[in-house]
Amino acid sequence: MHSHDAPVAHQFDDAGQQQEAVTLGMWLFLAQEILFFGGLFLTYAVYRSLYPEAYAAASHELDITLGGINTAVLITSSLTMAMAVHSAHAGRRKAILGWLVATLALGGAFLGIKAVEYAAKFEHHLFPGPHFQFPDPALAAPARIYYSLYFAMTGMHALHMVIGFGILLWLIWLTARGRITAQRAAPVEMTGLYWHFVDIVWIFLFPLLYLIGRHG
């Protein structure tokens, strides 16, 4: 099918084939991202199986309210991102801009809350550096492993958020200049896939880091 206003790169037969290739390429990237984060989740799981009490005690030091609010903020940002993609397919520029800015604001709120949490961990000597202290000295060594993983996993997740933040700014610039249309929605759509993936990582991080052994 030929569409004269869809910019198709010369290596593709038509816009449909180009769209399939773009989507497939993005999912290939996300498949390796699954394994990239998978290594961290695996390390988490191995040490949790070895030191369940230390994990539970260390998890109790996290702020469940801030973690819960951040989960809701991120899920809401996924909705606004989905709406941005939806608007892009319809080619409604003002709507795209509005949803992208909303997603950017929610992403910023997530990072701000994360920064508040990190600051509290540093203040309470829970950062696994030279000043690390744990309330129960008997569990200090494995609790330190938990906190190393906490900072590595949430830090790597936050880094993905910061990169997403940059891509959103670029998309807002593209949209404002009229470079995103119904026929050229792929940049918004692919950013959507990335943003939702980062949301999924948090969907696992929240219960695994914040919600261990909270009962009793």
Binding site: T23, L24, A31, Q32, I34, M81, L193, H196, F197, D199
Partner: peptide, 28 residues
């Protein structure tokens, strides 16, 4: 995660090849 993948990421409406790639990621 399944809800996000199927509906927000539109995997439900993607080509079979894309579905295989996504499944392979989780399988590995």
């Amino acid at each position: 995660a399944t809800l996000v993948v199927l509906y927000f990421m539109h995997l439900k409406d993607s080509t079979k090849l894309t579905k295989v790639i996504a499944a392979a990621g989780f399988f590995w």
